[in-house]
Structure formats: structure tokens, C-alpha cells
Design a protein around this nucleic acid. Structure first.
Lengths: 90, 90
DNA sequence: GATAGATGTGACCGTACGCTTACAACTGTA
DNA sequence: TACAGTTGTAAGCGTACGGTCACATCTATC
């Protein structure tokens, strides 16, 4: 599942939790976070701490991957230039 | 790049930044975070806010993916059971 | 040697985290 | 109709976030 925004991340985690038929309380207990935190995070809380997010992801049997962003599969060489261009502008 | 811990995430982001020959200050400016924050995050700060982390990842031309965790490629069906087992143990 | 850039670290401060407790709304189920 | 479970919020609190300055260290390049 490709994640572009915090809402994507929140929705993916909620979807996975429901796929496993888990309550927020069950997930929270396994990930050692509060149930309230799970509720707010699933609503898209962008200020959540990355450490807790990782614990929840792990508790759901998911893994994070970081890949190079590619909109169009056949222009990988140009993408890096477009990224650097953004830095070089002044 | 598979991410299992915060240190993995930090190292991957630092590696990507260096691959692009960017300074912490350049990355910070593009991602709208402080240079000091980049320094501390690259050291593995687990309390960093997910919103800032996502901004930095995007600024580096990277994308997050969430996939099902699979240790052994040929036992995908059993993995889900092992996950649920952890929840069902009282 | 001197200067500039990159990086790590510390102090200070306004703000908000995450946890706990509590309550309300909703859904099934006995 | 009760009862239990799930979920969303809100208040209160201890703590630490992230930004800003400031300083020290370490390279390069002049």
C-alpha cells in the first residue's frame, strides 16, 4: 500500500486492524499505547510520535518500506533531477 | 528498503540525503523543519512527530509503503495466524 | 593560518504530546 | 429493557516536543 499522506497511513492502519477483526483496545494493548491514542491516530493525527506509530505497525504484522518515488514508471532517471532542481532553486 | 526500527528509518533517510549530496540545512529548508531537528532525527529520535518525518521523506523523493510482514516467503498463510495468536492470548 | 560550511549539542520557551479518567453515543445480545 | 463492548471526546497533568540562539568541532579551500 502506497502512503503519501498521514490520512493514507491512518486509513491503512485502520483497515488492517479491521481486517484482523481487532478492537482499538486490543491493538493498543499489544502495541503498548493507549486506546485513545489509537482512536485519534486513526483520525489522522499528524503530531503522533513516530515511535508509537512504528509499534502499532509492527503489532499489525506490517512492515514499512521506503522506495524512490516514481509517478511514471519509465522516467526514473529524470525524477532525481526534478528533486535536486527543487533544492538548487536559490 | 525495509524498515524495522527507528534506527533503520533514520539511517535510510540520512543515506538518501547523502546520496543526493544535500546538507542537513538544505533538506531542512525544503521540508520546512529546523536543521537541528534533522540532525537529531538522523540520530534515531523516536519521539519525532510523524508529520515532520513524512515531510522529510517526501522532500527526499521517497515514498512510504506498508506491506505485510513476511519472514519466510512461503508461509504467508501462517503468518496471519501467528499475529492473531498474540492478540488472543488473553 | 584564516575563513566558510557542515554537524552535533545545549539552554530556553511556548506549546502540545500521550496517559488517565470520565462520559456519551452507538451496536448487538441476552 | 438491560447489559457489555466499541468508539469518539474532553479535561487535567507531567513531560517533552520543535524552533531559535548559541557555541564547539571538524573539514575543505583560500
Amino acid at each position: 500500500m502506497k502512503i503519501n499522506t498521514i490520512r493514507d497511513l491512518a486509513a491503512t492502519i485502520r483497515g488492517r486492524r479491521l481486517d484482523l477483526s481487532l478492537s482499538q483496545a486490543e491493538l493498543a494493548r499489544t502495541a503498548s499505547v493507549s486506546r485513545e491514542w489509537v482512536s485519534e491516530f486513526e483520525s489522522g493525527k499528524s503530531t503522533a510520535e513516530i515511535g508509537l506509530v512504528i509499534r502499532v505497525i509492527e503489532a499489525l504484522g506490517l512492515r514499512i518500506e521506503l522506495t524512490e518515488y516514481e509517478d511514471v514508471p519509465d522516467s526514473s532517471a529524470l525524477d532525481l533531477d526534478s528533486i535536486l532542481q527543487e533544492y538548487r532553486e536559490k
